[in-house]
């Protein structure tokens, strides 16, 4: 190399070219650290949520023994004779979520199969964004729809259905989370390679048999992930249940009467003028902790399941 010096090094132009490498390196490092700090904000958010909830929940349990929290059968934290049976709120959340999932999971999965396997590319191109509009409708709008449209219709053929009830809130919540299930499951089903379908057809199966026997099992991890997300959405849904299911904390699984979910309780307390030092104020953090733990467990399950059952294709 020494015997052939680069022609550039001898030319006049080479002297003109000043790469300013130090400045480039310096700005590179600066940008890298700033962006890394930005990325850490998301970690800080998680820590902030966890510490906020733990701190206030701890304060709450210093005044209310955890035994009472888990065993009492009434929820009246704002009364003088306060009772703190969290299962009253959990049962309401459970009931509305189960109703919602009975709508969202089967309908969402069938819609995903339709979009991916039966709809022509042109129809799919139109249908998928239209379904995604449903996902973009604010939940307060669904609450209005449940209370003032669905409930009056249901009341005409379900006797004893109250103005506020778990049934109508659950049904509308199912419609609200349906597009998440449909869209995410569709992604998973669409991603199954064509060769698997062709192999199945070669064995003489019909289209339905190919879908239920080959395509759906191959897309299982994605479908289950979408289902788990739907459960998390249903549990954390706030405005639909606050508007349409009422604010009556009752330990019941009767979908016709008013109930109060965990999220609806947090909204109820937040709207009132509760002093920050009062017990009622700490209660919403204890309820929030319960909610966070439920979604956290769901997330971990989903993460584990996807890792365990994910199919990798070339």
């Amino acid at each position: 190399m020494k015997s052939h010096p680069s022609p550039l090094a001898r030319s006049q132009d080479a002297q003109m070219w000043q790469p300013k490498r130090n400045l480039s390196k310096w700005s590179e490092q600066l940008v890298k650290y700033i962006f890394a700090a930005f990325a850490l904000i998301s970690v800080a958010t998680t820590l902030g949520i966890v510490f906020t909830l733990i701190f206030e929940t701890f304060e709450f349990f210093r005044e209310v023994p955890i035994f009472r929290f888990l065993t009492e059968t009434q929820w009246t934290p704002l009364f003088t004779n306060a009772k703190f049976g969290i299962w009253v709120l959990v049962s309401a959340t459970f009931m509305t979520s189960v109703i919602a999932l009975f709508v969202a999971l089967p309908v969402g999965l069938l819609a995903a199969i339709c979009l991916s396997e039966y709809a022509s590319p042109r129809v799919r191109q139109w249908l998928k964004p239209t379904l995604e509009i449903l996902a973009g409708v604010p939940t307060v709008v669904y609450g209005y729809f449940a209370l003032l449209f669905i409930t009056p219709i249901l009341q005409t053929f379900i006797p004893g259905l109250k103005t506020f009830n778990g049934l109508s809130a659950g049904l509308v919540m199912g419609i609200a989370i349906l597009p998440f299930v449909a869209s995410l499951s569709e992604d998973a089903i669409y991603a199954v390679p064509q060769s698997l379908r062709q192999g199945s057809y070669a064995l003489g199966t019909t289209k339905r048999e190919t879908i239920t026997g080959v395509v759906l099992p191959a897309a299982l991890s994605g479908i289950v992930a979408s289902f788990v997300l739907a459960v998390a959405r249903a549990v954390g849904e706030t405005m639909i249940v606050t508007i349409a299911a009422g604010s009556n904390p009752t330990l019941t699984f009767d979908p016709r009467v008013p109930v109060q979910t965990m999220t609806a309780f947090i909204v109820q307390v937040s709207l009132g003028d509760t002093p920050a030092t009062s017990l009622a104020f700490k209660t919403i953090f204890a309820v929030g902790m319960m909610l966070f733990l439920m979604t956290f467990v769901l997330n971990i399950f989903s993460f584990w399941f996807v890792r365990r059952f994910q199919e990798k294709y070339e």
């Binding site: 998301s42 958010t45 949520i49 954390g236 706030t238 929030g288 909610l291 979604t295 997330n299 989903s302």
Partner: peptide, 20 residues
Amino acid sequence: LIEINIGNLAAVPSIIYGLL
């Protein structure tokens, strides 16, 4: 860790952010 955390945050109910 950051990636798992972001996936996790996306599924946290919005009302929890309100408490934060």
